[in-house]
Simulated scan of single mutants.
Amino acid sequence: MASFDELKTTIRLNQLLGMWAAEKLGLTGADADNYAKACATDTIDPERNDMFGRVRADFDAAGVVQSDEQILDAMRRCKLEAGAMEPTTGGSGDAAAVMLARKLSPR
Score class of each variant (00 low, 15 high):
M1S: 11
M1W: 02
M1K: 10
A2N: 15
S3L: 07
S3P: 13
F4N: 12
F4S: 13
F4T: 13
D5G: 12
D5Y: 14
E6V: 08
L7C: 08
L7T: 12
K8N: 09
I11A: 04
I11S: 02
R12M: 09
R12S: 10
L13V: 05
L13G: 01
N14F: 11
N14K: 06
Q15V: 08
L16R: 03
L16C: 04
G18R: 02
M19Y: 06
M19G: 02
W20Q: 09
W20V: 08
W20S: 06
A21L: 07
A21V: 07
A21M: 07
A21Y: 12
E23Y: 03
E23L: 02
E23F: 01
L25A: 04
L25V: 05
G26V: 02
T28S: 06
T28N: 02
G29L: 05
G29D: 05
A30P: 08
A30F: 06
D31Q: 00
D31K: 04
A32M: 06
A32N: 03
A32I: 04
A32H: 05
D33W: 04
D33P: 00
D33I: 09
N34W: 06
Y35N: 04
Y35W: 05
A36G: 05
A36H: 05
K37W: 01
A38W: 01
A38F: 00
C39T: 11
C39F: 14
T41Y: 15
D42I: 03
T43V: 09
T43G: 07
D45W: 13
D45C: 14
D45F: 14
P46S: 04
E47I: 07
R48G: 08
N49C: 07
D50I: 07
M51A: 14
M51Q: 15
G53R: 00
R54H: 03
V55K: 00
V55E: 01
R56P: 01
R56K: 12
A57C: 04
F59D: 02
F59I: 03
F59R: 02
D60S: 08
D60T: 09
D60V: 08
A61Y: 00
A61W: 01
A61N: 05
G63R: 01
S67D: 06
D68Q: 07
D68T: 06
Q70Y: 07
L72V: 04
D73S: 10
D73R: 07
A74Y: 06
M75F: 10
M75D: 06
C78L: 00
C78W: 00
C78T: 00
K79M: 11
E81Q: 13
A82S: 05
G83C: 12
A84C: 02
A84G: 03
M85K: 03
E86L: 12
P87K: 15
P87M: 15
P87A: 15
T88Y: 08
T89P: 02
S92H: 14
G93Q: 14
G93F: 09
D94K: 15
A95K: 14
A95T: 14
A96I: 10
A97E: 13
A97P: 00
V98D: 12
M99L: 13
M99K: 11
M99D: 14
M99S: 12
L100R: 06
L100G: 03
A101H: 11
A101D: 12
A101Y: 10
R102Q: 11
L104W: 08
L104A: 11
L104H: 09
L104N: 10
L104M: 11
L104V: 10
S105G: 03
P106V: 02
R107A: 14
R107K: 14
R107E: 12
